[in-house]
C-alpha cells in the first residue's frame, strides 16, 4: 500500500518536472521551427502549429540582409581577446596573491572584491569619456577592456581557491633545484591550472559572446559590430521586421554557443556551481 502511494507520488513528480522542462525549452524550439518555416506560413497560421513546409530560404535572406559573417568574426575576436586577458591576468594575480604572497595582499584582495559587487553601469560614462579622449572609442579594445576588467575578480578568485590547495612541497622540490618564481609559474602552476582555465573560459565566453551593453555604448561603425548589435540591424525602418529571416539569423548566432554548451555542459555546470557556491 505504502509502496504504491510512493510510486504514484514519484510518477506525478516526473510528469510535473517534464511539464516544467517543456515550458522552459519550448520557446527555444519554437524559435528554431520558425526559422525553418516559410514566411507566408508564419504570417497566416496559428503560432503553435507545426510548419506547413520546411525551407532554408530564411537563412539565405538572413545572410543577404545583414552582415552575419562579419558580426560572428567580430564576436570571435572580442571573445578570444577578453578570455586571453581574463585567464592570463587572473592566473598572474592569483599566483602573486596565493603562492608568492606579500604584505598588502589583504588590501589587494579587497580591491578586487569590489569588482564582483559593483554593477557595470558605473563604468559606462567614464569609459566613454576616457575612450573619446585617447581615441579608443569604436575599437575592439573598447569592448575587451571592460569585459575583461569586470570578469577579472571572479577569475582571480577561482584560480586563488585552486592554488590554495596545491601543497607547498610541490614548489619546494623545484625551488631546491634552483627554479625561480617565473620558471615555477611556467612549469608547475600553469600546467596544473588547465581544468580551471577551461571552466573560466567556458563561463566567461557566455557573457562575452552575448555582451550587449558595452558593445552598444562604445561601438558605432558597422565593421566592428558584434553579434548582438548585428542582430538589431534586422529591425528595419518603421519597425518592419522580416521575422522568419530574423529568427534564422538568431539561430545562426546562438547555435555555436549552444553546441559548445551541450557538448561540454558537465564542465560548464560544475564551473557555474563552484563559482556561485563559493562566491
Amino acid at each position: 500500500m505504502r509502496r504504491e502511494r510512493l510510486d504514484v507520488h514519484r510518477s506525478l513528480n516526473g510528469v510535473f518536472v517534464g511539464l516544467i522542462v517543456v515550458a522552459q525549452v519550448y520557446p527555444l524550439a519554437w524559435l528554431f521551427l520558425t526559422a525553418l518555416r516559410p514566411e507566408q506560413d508564419f504570417a497566416s497560421s496559428n503560432p503553435f502549429s507545426l510548419p506547413g513546409a520546411l525551407t532554408l530560404d530564411n537563412f539565405a535572406r538572413a545572410f543577404e540582409t545583414g552582415n552575419l559573417g562579419l558580426n560572428i568574426l567580430n564576436s570571435l575576436v572580442v571573445t578570444f581577446g577578453a578570455n586571453l586577458l581574463i585567464v592570463a591576468l587572473g592566473m598572474m594575480a592569483a599566483y602573486a596573491l596565493e603562492v608568492l604572497g606579500f604584505r598588502l595582499r589583504g588590501f589587494v584582495r579587497g580591491l578586487f572584491l569590489i569588482g564582483i559587487i559593483v554593477p557595470v553601469q558605473i563604468a559606462l560614462v567614464p569609459l566613454f569619456i576616457d575612450y573619446a579622449a585617447v581615441g579608443l572609442l569604436d575599437t575592439y579594445g573598447s569592448m575587451i577592456i571592460p569585459l575583461a576588467g569586470f570578469a577579472l575578480p571572479m577569475s582571480i578568485y577561482l584560480f586563488s581557491s585552486f592554488y590554495h590547495y596545491i601543497p607547498p612541497e610541490t614548489y619546494e622540490a623545484a625551488s631546491l633545484d634552483g627554479a625561480g618564481p617565473y620558471r615555477i609559474f611556467g612549469q608547475i602552476t600553469l600546467p596544473l591550472s588547465l581544468n580551471t582555465i577551461v571552466t573560466i573560459v567556458l563561463v566567461n565566453s557566455i557573457f562575452i559572446w552575448n555582451d550587449f551593453i558595452f558593445a552598444n555604448t562604445f561601438v558605432l561603425s558597422d565593421g566592428l559590430k558584434t553579434i548582438p548589435l548585428g542582430l538589431q540591424n534586422y529591425i528595419g525602418a518603421m519597425g518592419n521586421v522580416d521575422w522568419t529571416a530574423t529568427f534564422a539569423a538568431v539561430c545562426v548566432t546562438i547555435t555555436p554557443l549552444m553546441l559548445v554548451f551541450l557538448v561540454l555542459n558537465k564542465a560548464m555546470i560544475q564551473g557555474l556551481e563552484s563559482g556561485a557556491a563559493k562566491g
Partner: peptide, 13 residues
C-alpha cells in the same frame, strides 16, 4: 542541461 539552456542565449535574441 535543458533547464540551463536559456542562460546561454543573448539578451538580443
Amino acid at each position: 542541461t535543458l533547464y540551463l539552456l536559456p542562460a546561454v542565449i543573448s539578451t538580443v535574441a
